[in-house]
Design a protein around this nucleic acid. Structure first.
Lengths: 254, 254
DNA sequence: AAGTGGTCTAGACCACTCA
DNA sequence: GAGTGGTCTAGACCACTTA
């Protein structure tokens, strides 16, 4: 027939909008600069605010923008490379050079999946450490580290019932075991309320969840569940977080 | 004053909704089961459809749900563990046992960031391979593999100008180099139109982008940019993708 | 108090799948 | 063609930051 299908797959508005904004960010904005507010931007592009927000959400997901309630939308700096299983691949958490900051430590019954992997009983409490990690002064990750009681038997005599001091004591005891290996897994998740608070994000924000199993004595001696801000972090599994590589056009370094 | 702040931080509706749905998924649904449609669900919970969708979106992001236009919303199976830098840590792509399927190969000018890392000139074409990876019959990842021309000098005599045959030829030549090391980085992204098509998702779907640099001869000989479906994949950087570990309650295995 | 992004509504129409 | 999820609108109010 004579019907020429010129635009058989019309691009959604928010998708086109995202492309336009992305190019504008490359050419007309520099890092840290604040964008016009959402109502103005929507009007300028002739779309509803919800549609504009859909585009902004994607750009934020890709680490191009940073939005803060009550403040505004700013151009985000390039993602920081964060070493996760680097040269210290075969060290326990808390070894010298570890970039994590112990926050707290309690004895709690862990989630069922953790108990199963640790091969403790389903209702047995384990040492539950909270640690946090910062980069350039910004919080980038929050961790829950589960250590089986059997892994650090000589602990009880020493220490405080909880708090950072106790956390350090548990980590110190861990170093005495011979680490036979570790295994990382990365998946996408959304921040629980407590992690969100620590990461300075809203609950539900996208995060990269890194689960690490530490092997010693033929068993899983400890499990770490680390929650990284997906918008600001690039996780590196190698020697360095050096060179910047990503798809799409170069970003202005400002 | 006498004002007791009982609910100083009221939970957003979609957040509460997500929790409720999540628990319902755990207790009342099994993998593959289809949920009521969005209009019905919204009515049942007494919220607007947009609000319900916000909850569903998060659950899909967490890999709990799968939504397909024209079909419906179903309960997703647990994420599959996909080995990314496992025991074959020190093999080239295309080595025996590689799980990737070569699709195509052309000679193209790469994105600027890739050219910079490969230390080819900014306008020099490089071998650009497309590969895809499936797991249990489902596509899980699409890859662009950039190989500097200098890395495979003996190629020209042999082969086809493009296509899977040429891709295999390039990979064959790569094996002859001594691989000195490789380095992975993982970050969150959204699927470009071409990747989305290959992954059977809509453009903009959340993906985990794994960038790998291959070192040989003191240089970066090749760069791989692999795009994994974030909803269905858990990337493992260790020996196996065995045990299932995640936060929150257990899922019914159906 | 003013201005920002975050949540929510009640509609409409479109693109897609499948019987 | 009926039913699904995907896009879009034009409003409203809320929570938060900053001055």
């Amino acid at each position: 027939m004579g019907t020429t299908q010129l635009e058989s797959v019309p691009e959604p508005k928010y998708w086109h909008l995202k492309t336009v904004l992305s190019e504008a960010l490359d050419s007309e904005f520099s890092v840290g600069e604040i964008l016009p507010n959402e109502r103005d931007l929507a009007a300028r592009f002739g779309v509803a605010r919800a549609t504009l927000r859909q585009a902004l959400e994607q750009l934020e997901l890709e680490g191009r923008l940073q939005r803060r309630r009550g403040v505004g939308t700013t151009v985000a700096p390039p993602r920081v490379g964060v070493a996760v299983g680097g040269s210290e691949q075969h060290d326990w958490p808390g070894a010298t050079g570890d970039t994590w900051q112990p926050v707290d430590c309690t004895l709690e019954v862990p989630p069922a999946a953790v108990a199963a992997a640790l091969e403790t009983g389903a209702d047995r409490p384990v040492h539950t450490l909270r640690r946090s990690r910062t980069s350039n002064g910004q919080p980038v990750a929050a961790e829950l580290l589960y250590v089986a009681e059997a892994s650090v038997p000589d602990l009880s005599a020493i220490d405080a019932p909880s708090g950072a001091a106790r956390a350090r004591a548990v980590l110190r005891e861990l170093q005495r075991l011979e680490l036979e290996g570790r295994e990382n897994a990365v998946e996408l998740g959304s921040a629980r309320a407590d992690d969100a608070k620590e990461l300075d994000r809203l609950p539900g924000a996208p995060v990269l969840v890194v689960t690490t199993r530490y092997f010693a004595g033929g068993r899983v001696a400890a499990i770490s569940v680390a929650t990284y801000r997906a918008d600001t972090c690039r996780l590196t599994f190698g020697d360095s977080g050096g060179v910047e590589i990503h798809q799409g056009p170069e970003r202005k370094a400002s």
